[in-house]
Design a protein around this nucleic acid. Structure first.
Length: 314
DNA sequence: AAGCTTCGCAACCGCAGCATC
DNA sequence: TGATGCTGCGGTTGCGAAGCT
């Protein structure tokens, strides 16, 4: 007798999530928290398995997700971490607040691998590729050395001697970048202070936004690398109607704003065009800095249905 | 413009680890 | 102490977008 499947697969929906499903899941989690993923879809009214809900939340809906391209600094740090940790993506992701293991894994496989190969570095062993044996055989090298350096389970906290040495020495990677610590990660959002004001400005109504307070975040909004998993995966939400914040100040303890109440605010359509223009401008200039819950994709569709798909603004 | 190929990413799958009974 | 259930992880797949011919 084998293991039972994680869920009753018959009749369950698969494939890409719809906006409605996202809203249902988000609304449910924000109101109820996460106790048991298996029960989440039933209680939330979703025809998905719990595993799928979990994945969707972690990789896409979590309010503290950081979106946007990886910076050079992040890439270098990723290479450094990979040389120490191997393909343990969740551990690597723990050093990048707001990034998911899936995102990092994808980025590694699609970008960094190629980048390293172009530099003549084996992305698995992090050592220079021996040209005699590797000409045009990078893939074979990959598979042949699969996880060769990754099976050391004791390397987590060890600083192995690793230095990125591109064959082309024109632009060697400064060592200070390679040994960058996770504390620097928040430097990727240097505009936070500025963003506070503009963040508030683009929101048609203060009361539509809820602040989400997580345990595990300190006042500077830093997530310790060791606390990422527990705080994110077992969030303790403190739902707080932000209208109670009588001023418009950004709450530094809130990790993100979500749009669970968006639909209740649709009557404010008289502000749509103005806000749309403002938000478009703001998003374009601040998207990397914003606590980028990707609901902005849907944000436009829900908030400004009559202006979807990049209206021409003269 | 149409067809083909490549790329990037979201989502799925199966397994391992851990907790509970 | 083994069976069972749930969660998390890493590998893989599928599909849409972008690029190329």
């Amino acid at each position: 007798m084998g293991r039972q499947p994680c869920c009753e697969k018959v009749g369950l929906k698969r494939g890409p999530w719809t906006i409605e499903e996202d809203h249902k899941l988000m609304h449910f989690i924000l109101n109820n928290g996460i106790h048991c993923w298996r029960t989440v879809p039933k209680l939330a009214g979703l025809m998905r398995c719990g595993k799928s809900c979990r994945l969707r939340w972690i990789n896409y809906l979590r309010p503290d997700l950081k979106r946007g391209a990886f910076t050079d600094m992040e890439e270098n740090q990723m290479i450094q971490l990979h040389s120490r940790l191997g393909n343990r993506w969740s551990k690597i992701a723990g050093h990048f607040p707001g990034r998911t293991d899936n995102e990092i894994k994808n980025h590694w496989n699609t970008r960094i691998k190629k980048k390293l190969k172009q530099l003549g570095i084996d992305p698995v062993t992090h050592k220079p590729i021996n040209n005699e044996h590797s000409h045009g055989k990078c893939e074979e090298v990959d598979e042949g050395h699969n996880l060769q350096s990754n099976d050391n389970t004791e390397v987590d906290d060890q600083e192995q001697s690793f230095e990125l040495k591109p064959q082309s020495t024109a632009n060697p990677v400064p060592k200070e970048i390679l040994v960058m610590t996770t504390q620097n990660s928040n430097e990727d959002m240097p505009e936070l202070d500025n963003g506070r004001n503009t963040t508030n400005n683009i929101f048609p109504s203060q009361e539509m936004w809820w602040n989400i307070n997580y345990d595990g975040f300190d006042q500077n909004n830093n997530m310790g690398s060791s606390s990422v998993d527990s705080s994110v995966l077992n969030p303790s939400f403190s739902l707080e109607d932000s209208s109670l914040n009588t001023n418009n100040n950004y709450n530094p303890n809130s990790v993100g704003e979500c749009s669970s109440h968006i639909q209740q605010q649709l009557h404010q359509q008289n502000q749509q065009q103005e806000n749309y223009i403002y938000s478009q401008t703001w998003i374009e200039s601040n998207v990397d800095a914003f606590l980028s819950w990707d609901g902005f994709h849907h944000f436009e569709e829900v908030m400004f249905p009559s202006f979807q798909k990049s209206p021409t603004i003269n």
